[in-house]
Amino acid sequence: MTRYVTGRILSLLFVMWIVSMVTFAMMHAVPGGPFDETKGRLPPAARENILRKYGLDKPYHVQYLNYMKNALRLDFGIPFSNPTATVTEVILSRWRVTAQVGILTVLFAFGGGILMGVFAAYHQNSLLDNAVTFLAMLGVVIPSFVVALWLILIFAVRLDLVPMRGWSDSGECLIGDVAFCSDWILPVFAYCIGPMGVIGRYTRASVVDVMRQDYTRTARAKGVSERMLMFRHVLRNAQIPMITALATEVPNLMTGSIFIESTFSINGLGKYFVTSVFNRDYPMIMALFLLIAFLWSLTYLLSDLAYTWVDPRVRLGGAQAA
């Protein structure tokens, strides 16, 4: 087990290294540099100075090596668009906002999705099951920006129930604040119905599968109460596909959606990424790519470990039964 985890961590580091190289190469291949047009026309001497300050006048391989040397000491540089802060500070402050949306969305998506899935599976093939399946599908297939647009139109413009203003990015509104509530309800709802549908469908499929098993029939035959059957026999065995859903949804939700953040003008990571790409803000692009790649790889690793914890039959590393 220790050997397996060590191996996985080493391969994670390898993946991060390749990601950093590819991102660096692609980012510099994008035509146009960060100081070509911004701040009006710079006189050539000033431009040269700025380039030298950020080390952009050096050959690419030297720039890359310098970047990596600093990155290994967790110094990710200074964003061109906001030179008074470090990249780490900017990312952390944006992430605070994104994480608030993300945590609420994860909670709602998983709570709602698992409830829907279990409910639909338990009343399999009934009218309710069909309705839930249809709703889940609707949530999965309709793009979040479309949902967001209609939520704003209906609840903010027509019914005037919630304010149109965006998410406060100063961090003064925190979860629990009353004013905060009217801010988060639409973005979180728009954001969570997609993942909720995915989780609902996963849960339904796996619960239906477990309910067909012999041991469920045996448990029912020996007179286990329905509630006990659900919690002790069915849900425990239906966890594996739920972990898969968790592993694919959580990193996504925690790093923010470009669509949700730009529609609701939330100043989070997702929105910032697009601006960074457009502004050719090299340190920000590198840091965001590395961060997201790291989160993804880490979640995969953790979910693989979670499989062994949930299901003792799963063995990692060695020969797996196909």
């Binding site: 391969s11 390898f14 993946v15 991060m16 390749i18 990601v19 590819v22 991102t23 692609m26 980012m27 291949a29 994008v30 035509p31 790093t255 470009i258 990424f273 697009v274 790409v277 457009f278 692009i285 965001l288 790519f289 997201i292 790649a293 993804w296 790889s297």
Partner: peptide
């Protein structure tokens, strides 16, 4: 390995970077 590395890239962001390229 190649697939592992490519799946570590954030899909949509990667596409945006390519398109800006």
């Amino acid at each position: 390995r190649v697939v592992d590395i490519m799946s570590a890239f954030p899909g949509l962001l990667f596409t945006i970077l390519i398109i800006s390229l």
